[in-house]
Write a protein that binds this DNA or RNA. Structure first.
Lengths: 252, 252
DNA sequence: ACCTGAACACCGTTCAAGT
DNA sequence: ACCTGAACACCGTTCAAGT
C-alpha cells in the first residue's frame, strides 16, 4: 500500500520533483553535492528512472537554468514596461535584476556550472536553444529601451557603436559583479561595503559616459530605484524580504 | 635502468610537471577531463605520489590559478608603471589584461572552476591567502592609479564613492566580459562582433561617466592602446601572436 | 510500457605493504 | 623516507530482468 501511495505521488509531475530536489541540493551543498544517486535516493526512485526524464546530469542543470531564466524574462519584460523615460526604465531593469538575484539565489551558481565547457557540451540542442531564446529576449528587452532613448533624443550613440554593445556593457558588468559576489572571495576585504549599491552606481556612470540623459548628476536614480522596488515591484520585493528572513532564521 | 632514468626525471621538480600536465588537460578537455588518475598515468607516477604534493585535486587547481595570478601581477605592475597620465596608465592595464587573457587562455576556465563553492571550500588557507594577496595587489595597482588621478586633478570622485568602487566597476566589467567570452554562449549571435573592442570602449565610457580626464572624446585611447601593445608590451604581444599562430595550426 | 537495481567504468582518497 | 597500487566509497550511465 505504501507502494501505491508512492505511485500516486509519482504520477504527479515527477520532473518538477526532480528539479526541486536538485535545486535545493545545489543550493545547500554546491556542485559536488548534486548527484543523480542522491536525487534518486531522496525521491525514492531508482537511478534508472531519472534517465527517463533527463538524459544526463547536465540536462538537469540546464533545465533548472531555463526555469529561472523564464522567470527572469518575465521580470525583464515588466521592468522594460515601466511607464517612464528610457533611462528610468533601465533603472527598473537594474532593480529587476537585483530582485531576481535575491529570489533565485541558486541561479548564478547554476550558471557558473553551466558555463564550464565540459558541462555545456553535454547538453541537448533543444534545451540550449531554449536558453538562447531567453537570453536574446532579455538582451532584446534592454536594447529596445536603448533604441527608444535614441528615438526620443535622450541618447546619441557614437558612430560604430551599436545598442547591443551598450547592453553588453551593462550585462558584463552585472554578470561579473554577481559572479564575484556569489563566489567566496570576500569583497569587503578590498573595501566594497555594499556591492549591490556599488554595482548600481557603476552602471549609472556607464550610462552617463554614453551621455544618456538625464545624467545621474541631474536625477536621483537611487531614490527612483527604491521607489520602483517598493511600488512597481512591490510583490517581488515582499517575496524577496520573506526569503531573506527565512534564510536568516535558518542560519540562526 | 629505465626505472633509474625515470627517477632522475622525478627528482627535477615534479610539482611543476604535475601542474603543466594538469593545465594542458584542463585546456584541452575541460574540467571533467582533469583527473588525478589521468595526471598520474600521464606522468607515470602512482596515484599516491600525487598526494605528497597536493592534498586534493582542488589544490592543484588553486596552485595553477596562483601561478597565473603571479604572472598577471607582473603585467599589472608594468602597466601601472607606464610613464604617462593616469588615464593612459589605466588604458595600459586594459592592454595588459587582454594580453594576459591571450597568453593564459586556461586562466579564466580555472577561475570559473575555482569559484564554485564546492571547489573553493576544499582548498587550503595557505594557498587561499596567496591568491588573496595577488588579487589585492592587483586591485591596489589600479586603485593607486585612481588616487594619482585624483591627486593630479584629472578626476574628482563624488562624495561617498571610493577609488575601490571604481576599480570594482572596471574589474566586474572585465571579469564578466571575459567569462561570457570564455564560455560557450556565442556573442556574435547577439551582435557583438569584436568583444575585446566592445569591452575596451565600455570601460572607457565608464571612466568618462566618472568624468576622468582626458575623456575618450578628447583623446584617442584606441590608438594609444594599440601603441602600448606594440611598443610598451612588445615582448608580450609577440608571445601572444606566436601562441595564436600555434593554436591556429593545431585547429587546421 | 514502465520501473528496477545490478553491473560497468570511472572517480578521489587512503593506507598497509613494500623498497 | 619515499613510493606503490590495492582497496574503499562514491560517481554517472547502461541495460537485462522483472512487473
Amino acid at each position: 500500500m505504501t507502494t501505491l501511495t508512492r505511485k500516486q505521488r509519482e504520477v504527479r509531475d515527477r520532473e518538477a520533483q526532480i528539479l526541486e530536489v536538485a535545486r535545493n541540493m545545489l543550493l545547500e551543498q554546491g556542485y559536488h553535492g548534486l548527484s543523480m544517486d542522491r536525487i534518486a535516493e531522496a525521491l525514492e526512485y531508482s537511478k534508472g528512472t531519472m534517465y527517463q526524464h533527463f538524459s544526463c546530469k547536465e540536462e538537469i542543470i540546464l533545465a533548472l537554468v531555463n526555469a529561472s531564466l523564464t522567470d527572469r524574462l518575465v521580470i525583464f519584460r515588466k521592468a522594460a514596461s515601466y511607464p517612464s523615460r528610457p533611462r528610468e526604465r533601465i533603472a527598473a531593469v537594474g532593480v529587476g535584476v537585483e530582485l531576481f538575484v535575491r529570489l533565485y539565489p541558486h541561479h548564478f551558481k547554476l550558471e557558473q556550472v553551466l558555463r564550464l565547457s565540459s558541462v555545456w557540451e553535454k547538453t541537448s540542442p533543444e534545451r540550449r536553444q531554449f536558453m538562447h531564446h531567453c537570453e536574446s529576449q532579455c538582451v532584446g528587452c534592454v536594447s529596445g529601451i536603448v533604441r527608444d532613448a535614441i528615438a526620443q533624443g535622450d541618447l546619441t550613440l557614437p558612430e560604430g557603436v551599436t545598442p547591443e554593445q551598450l547592453v553588453f556593457g551593462l550585462w558584463s558588468m552585472s554578470f561579473g559583479a554577481q559572479t564575484i559576489l556569489a563566489s567566496s572571495t570576500s569583497l569587503v576585504d578590498i573595501g566594497i561595503g555594499d556591492p549591490h549599491r556599488a554595482l548600481a552606481q557603476n552602471q549609472a556612470r556607464l550610462l552617463d559616459g554614453y551621455g544618456w540623459r538625464p545624467l545621474s548628476s541631474e536625477f536621483d536614480y537611487e531614490a527612483l530605484s527604491e521607489r520602483i522596488a517598493r511600488e512597481y515591484f512591490a510583490k517581488e520585493t515582499e517575496q524577496a524580504m520573506k526569503l531573506a528572513q527565512k534564510a536568516n532564521r535558518n542560519s540562526a
